[in-house]
Amino acid sequence: MTVTEIPLWADLAASLLLVAGGILTLIGSAGLLRLPDLFARMHGPTMGNTLGLGCVLLASIVVASALAHRFVFQELIIALFVVATSPVTSILLMRAGIYRRRGDGGTDGKVVAPLDGNA
């Protein structure tokens, strides 16, 4: 095991971040099962995509910097990429869901948002 050779502060910080990231991602994915309909389910995985992934990336930065004795921040690439792309997937899925449910009156009698514009 190489991870036992890092200083105490990095050990504590990375442990806290990993546990927080794990809990957030688990709750977000549990939302996929617990929430009632598609539009509500869109919100669950966003948690794992934002703060959960951020926590894991920060933990990775901390451990890699402590092991290499210099500041390693390559993980910034993944953060930038996910921040730029995951909203695109969500918006496309949202539009697809609205488009394919047009005219069936929504889940509980409320009218589903009208399909206007091409945003």
């Binding site: 991870v3 890092i6 050990d11 794990g22 809990i23 994915s29």
Partner: peptide, 17 residues
């Protein structure tokens, strides 16, 4: 050290997710 245990916990959480 705490880190191996935190990694174990996180891996289980990701597996459940």
């Amino acid at each position: 050290t705490l880190l191996p245990w935190a990694i174990f916990f996180a891996l289980i959480a990701f597996a459940l997710a």
